[in-house]
Nucleic acid binder design. Structure first.
Length: 218
DNA sequence: GTCCCGTAGC
DNA sequence: GCTACTGGAC
């Protein structure tokens, strides 16, 4: 099974890329926006995060955002859902960033493994958010796993490791260690999950139909 | 009413 | 393992 996955993971990438093309991720202007967006998008539709980002626009600077009262932050990000808890998560993240003088350059000096552990220690940042920040804001070669990844590959018929890290290592073992490839693949997975592999899948036009177990009868 | 690029707390 | 967290789009 694992062998099959190792050979098919790159093939699936090619098929998705041929179907959807380059995704140009992450949709943000700056690395700081990527980090903020990664927290706000937790279990939330990206569309609602966009509205919050618009409200945040005047404060899209770590120092300014850090000094916002938590209630103000709550109101600004309201549209992204879970606004009370996310405002606290953002603030916790900024408190950590303060250790680096709110400077991206200082983050760039740090080892990926160390950064990952520090991010995971922040209340409100779990493995997916940490890895999204590492890959899309800090350009580290870390493959991001999310619910879509599990849904798609489970439907393809793979017996997936249950632990986040194990699934991540499987993808990393199957692919060339390359930031741009990891960036594009995760983006394609999200796109595919939104267009075809939804909760109620749209199978007839699916680019992966020929290799999918959902295929039968639908 | 259901679902959304999760996480923490019990 | 289960549930709360929250609003908005469809």
């Amino acid at each position: 099974m694992t062998n099959r996955m190792l050979t098919e993971i790159p093939v699936v990438y090619n098929q998705l890329y041929q179907t959807y093309g380059c995704q140009h991720w992450w949709p943000a202007e700056t690395a700081f926006e990527v980090m903020v967006g990664a927290i706000l998008v937790q279990n939330t539709a990206w569309k609602n995060v966009e509205k919050a980002m618009l409200q945040l626009e005047p404060y899209l600077d770590p120092v300014q955002m850090f000094h916002l009262p938590i209630e103000k932050l709550e109101q600004l990000i309201r549209s992204s859902g879970f606004f009370r808890i996310k405002a606290r998560r953002l603030h916790a993240f900024l408190t950590w960033f303060k250790n680096y003088d709110f400077k991206m350059e200082q983050l760039h000096c740090q080892d990926t493994y160390l950064l990952r552990n520090q991010l995971l220690a922040i209340n409100g940042i779990g493995p997916e958010t940490a890895d999204s920040i590492l890959l899309y804001a800090l350009h580290r070669p870390v493959f991001v796993i999310d619910a879509y990844t599990r849904r798609i590959f489970k439907r393809l018929g793979f017996d997936l490791p249950k632990k986040y890290q194990d699934l991540r290592y499987l993808f990393e073992a199957a692919l060339v260690k390359d930031v741009q490839l990891y960036n594009e693949y995760h983006a394609l997975i999200v796109q595919h999950a939104k267009v075809h592999c939804k909760v109620k899948p749209i199978c007839p036009t699916c680019p992966l139909l020929d290799r999918c177990e959902q295929n039968v009868g639908s």
